[in-house]
Design a protein around this nucleic acid. Structure first.
Lengths: 141, 141
DNA sequence: TATATACTTGACTATTTTAGTCAGGTTTAT
DNA sequence: ATAAACCTGACTAAAATAGTCAAGTATATA
């Protein structure tokens, strides 16, 4: 089980963005340099973030991206969701009526995975971008 | 982020095993049929579980596998560990002295991932095979 | 002792996912 | 005008995954 780079990058980039006010746009080029993420890849990621209205784009020279909401209102859940980073534990088919994977009995561990998913998602729902930035500023002082 | 089949199968198979007493060995063939997991794949998985002394093998006719410890003492952590299912969130190189990935600053989200890893591992350390089987029997009654 | 059952091991492979790259745009501040 | 920066879609190398396949070895039981 591991987090993919896409999800990680998205959070890293947004944390970078959140450090600046919501007035001056930050260019992907800057984020790319600071965070060491390929510019082209960032563009793909931000395209998704924009579609989910997490960021707003500012075109042209001196353009870039700004947060579309307050950092406090952006939860990790929203970010992961936007870039299709999902917490998946079970493959049991939903359509089978009685149990999992066409078996007549519900698989022994079905509830376990559900529980695990909730446990993880819970963590993501609590954490906001603001939390991230705060933690870092505090640590820096 | 998703769990791989190897980890899932390992837990499913062991939960199946744990339902029987520790005296009569259960053949992989039976588990394969009951859980819908390829026999060959199960063999790979059990080879690892045996090396980590989670199960014991009984060869010959009527042979199979039995748990090597009490179900209570086998935590999910142990199982995942045995089959190399690891919770991985960060790729930051440990050897770099100051920060992550050769950057001079520690990456903004580093602590987040650590926290997440702990959160998940914590879940795995608490759950034992016994818990799983219990939950299921209770539900069945 | 013959034999079927079941463990044991290692090598191989198709498929999928990931983590990008590349090419060719469009928009707009200066 | 032009350079900076966003925007989009198609393509791809490499890695991981989820197995399969082949050739064993060990042993309970008839």
């Amino acid at each position: 089980m591991k987090l993919t780079s896409k999800g990680r990058y998205a959070v890293m980039a947004l944390a970078d963005l959140a450090r600046f006010d919501n007035i001056n746009p930050v260019s992907l080029r800057d984020i790319s340099l600071r965070q060491g993420i390929s510019l082209d890849y960032l563009e793909q990621i931000f395209s998704k973030l924009r579609k989910k209205e997490i960021v707003q784009s500012v075109r042209g020279t001196q353009g870039g991206y700004i947060l579309n909401k307050k950092a406090k209102e952006i939860k990790l859940t929203n970010i992961f969701d936007a870039v299709d980073e999902k917490v998946k534990t079970v493959q049991c088919k939903k359509d089978s009526k009685k149990g999992c994977n066409g078996k007549s009995t519900k698989c022994l561990t079905h509830n376990l995975w559900d529980e695990l998913e909730n446990h993880i998602n819970n963590f993501f729902e609590k954490k906001s971008l603001e939390d991230l930035v705060k933690e870092n500023t505090e640590r820096r002082i």
